[in-house]
Nucleic acid binder design. Structure first.
Length: 330
DNA sequence: GATGCGTGGGG
DNA sequence: TCCCCAAGCAT
């Protein structure tokens, strides 16, 4: 039987399974919409193991326990709390959202779908997540997990990273349990993490297998896009002077506010101290660090930083790693 | 609708 | 080593 012919049975099975098997995350213990929003924004394109295991969520909530605190946060402390999580503009949007709640809604988190959706950094998924997880309203959600689960359930072979995503949203809207939206949506995501994993799923353990239409789950979901990677090399310098290291504060773009080893075009010809690779969006970057042959002079935006200051600065993980190794060596 | 935005874990 | 991709959003 298809799931659309028996949504009630499907909901009951999924909710019952989730109540028994659902994992205990901090954001599942709270009904505070702010706490839910923080978790959802952190989890955008970011694995639970990172957010939870490396302590980002707990630290952030301790530092910024409510919208007022976050609304008042400064750039440096905000970015420092986000260091290592990536997609740094999420942090700025989150603070903007907190400011909107304080300013536009008098400090009371909105419950209206349109008003939630209008918060900075809140898209269709995140709005549905806050509505269902915090307020237990029957809003649909579609993230990577749900898209995969529903593609398989419906044996849907259109790419989910194109117009086909509309169908997935429509199914998510039809299926969401009007009686237990929070448990249902949580169950759908939990299912995607555990049984209905990417690649080869564990169909034997699936609580809703009797409603699943596909016979080739390992081929679903279909994705169309493939991004071409561009190779890039950047030449940075490791300059020391009296126990200090020359760093540059980035003033614009994706890493605005972060400190890096300074870049010099001429450095390509200087002796090499080491190289590290990292990926950033569609770029595959080789970061080459050089030893300046002559004393360096701080250019605009650059400063000599004491070693004990560097821990408190915000650095991209690659720069921090490289700097750590360079300081160890010499 | 396509593109830009991070990072780390796992196959 | 390399590739994939993970609780998306804004422009």
């Amino acid at each position: 039987m298809g799931v659309l012919e028996d949504p009630v049975g499907f909901r009951q099975a999924l909710v019952a399974w989730f109540q028994k098997n659902g994992r205990d995350y901090p954001w599942r213990r709270t009904r505070d919409p702010y706490a839910v929003l923080v978790s959802e924004v952190m989890l955008q394109q970011t694995q639970i193991a990172t957010v939870l295991g490396r302590g980002f969520y707990a630290r952030f909530m301790e530092r910024f326990p409510d919208v007022e605190t976050l609304a008042a946060a400064g750039d440096d402390e905000l970015l420092k709390a986000w260091e290592g999580l990536g997609y740094y503009r999420r942090a700025r949007f989150l603070r903007e959202a907190a400011r909107a709640v304080v300013g536009r809604h008098g400090g009371r988190f909105p419950e209206d779908p349109e008003e939630i959706r209008a918060l900075p950094g809140v898209g269709r998924y995140t709005a549905g997540a806050v509505l269902s997880f915090a307020f237990d309203q029957p809003a649909a959600i579609v993230d990577g997990n749900v898209a995969r689960v529903l593609s398989r359930l419906m044996d849907f072979h259109e790419p989910i990273d194109g117009p086909g995503l509309k169908s997935v949203w429509a199914w998510a809207g039809e299926l969401v349990d009007p009686r237990h939206p929070r448990l249902f949506n949580s169950g759908l995501m939990e299912l995607g993490q555990t049984c209905c994993r990417p690649g080869v799923p564990d169909c034997l353990a699936c609580p809703v297998g009797k409603w699943c239409a596909t016979r080739e789950p390992e081929r679903l979901p279909v994705k169309a896009k493939k991004v071409a990677m561009t190779e890039v090399t950047e030449h940075l310098v490791f300059a020391r002077r009296g126990g200090r290291v020359l760093l540059r504060k980035i003033d614009e773009g994706r890493r605005a506010g972060m400190w890096r080893l300074p870049e010099r075009e001429a450095a390509a010809d200087w002796p090499e101290l080491g190289r590290w690779k990292y990926g950033i969006t569609r770029y595959r970057v080789t970061m080459v660090v050089h030893d300046p042959p002559a004393p360096m002079r701080a250019a605009a935006g650059e400063a000599w930083k004491r070693l004990d200051e560097i821990d408190g600065l915000v650095l991209p993980p690659t720069d921090r790693k490289a700097l750590g190794q360079l300081l160890e060596c010499g």
